[in-house]
Design a protein around this nucleic acid. Structure first.
Length: 275
DNA sequence: AGGTTGACCTGTCAGC
DNA sequence: TGCTGACAGGTCAACC
């Protein structure tokens, strides 16, 4: 679930609460797919000086180093003021601080919590260096987007999911933005005309902004750090609506596998380099 | 080198 | 009710 909007919503929901907090204790649950990369004792007494987001990563700036959190497929972060609540079966990382408890709940354990000595460390380089531009930053221009798409022979949906051109668009929002831009998911990226690139650029910005505004998408269990659900899925045009009527033309929304991922689309509204 | 595939885990749900 | 199999939002190493 967690794509850019969910990670951004999560960040906003606890960034203020944890600002300035001193780490008192770390409790690790089952191992996640990546090691923490530091003895957890070494985090104690470090201070959280800020929270940022890069793509789908949450970055906690510490007085020394950075704690990177990824929510994987099923992760959510919660921040509790309660002193010592019981940890659940799927709480695999818990950080008790002077301001409250930050914990990562992740049933499928595709998530990660990794300590980075700095943004220049080899580990940081491996995880962050290849990421594309932030879709809501000024650097994400139509010119840049058109130039990068022209280099890719893959289906445009795969390019979006790759995150090397633009970050943060996952499977839900890829389907949504392609619908809004009236582009077939199977259209080769390099063959998109400039008007289609412009439409896609605009769709990415508007869909992600809107999703952040309404608290992200809650398909199964996503909540922000205080347990609030997202509402974007209620507004979705195609994702999760296979067999239902297209909100624009009334045709049935299709569901097909593309590169082993579900792709929802309207075969009437979404065309190959249409006008 | 660019592009594709399978693996990583567990929960949920449909079908029998 | 209980079992089995298919499927799920993301990455990334290994392979064509």
């Amino acid at each position: 679930m967690p794509e850019l909007p969910e990670v951004e919503v999560t960040k906003r929901s606890f960034a203020q609460c944890i600002q300035g907090a001193v780490i008192h204790r770390i409790v690790l649950g089952k191992p996640l797919r990546r090691p923490l990369g530091i003895d957890d004792e070494q985090l104690i007494d470090l201070r959280v000086v800020g929270v940022r987001r890069r793509g789908k990563y949450l970055l906690l700036d510490l007085s020394e180093g950075i704690l990177l959190i990824h929510l994987g497929m099923s992760g959510s972060v919660s921040f509790l003021l309660t002193a010592y609540p019981d940890l659940g079966k799927h709480d695999h990382f818990a950080m008790y601080t002077s301001h409250g408890l930050l914990r990562l709940n992740d049933p499928r354990r595709f998530g990660a919590v990794v300590f980075l000595a700095s943004e220049q460390s080899p580990q940081a380089h491996q995880l962050l260096a290849h990421l594309g531009v932030e879709p809501l930053d000024d650097a994400f221009t139509v010119e840049y987007f058109a130039r990068e798409l022209a280099k890719k022979k893959m289906a445009v949906k795969s390019v979006l999911l790759m995150g090397r051109v633009v970050v943060g668009v996952g499977n839900i929002y890829a389907s949504e933005v392609l619908f809004l831009a009236k582009i077939s998911p199977w259209q080769k990226a390099c063959e998109l005309t400039l008007p289609r690139v412009q439409a896609l650029h605009a769709a990415i910005r508007s869909v992600l902004s809107r999703a952040i505004e309404v608290g992200g998408s809650t398909l199964r269990n996503f909540t922000d750090a205080h347990g609030a659900h997202g509402r974007f899925q209620q507004e979705s045009y195609v994702y999760g609506r296979a067999g239902q009527s297209c909100r624009v033309c009334g045709a049935k929304i299709q569901l097909l596998q593309q590169a082993q991922r579900s792709t929802y689309f309207c075969s009437i509204c979404q065309v190959f380099n249409g006008s």
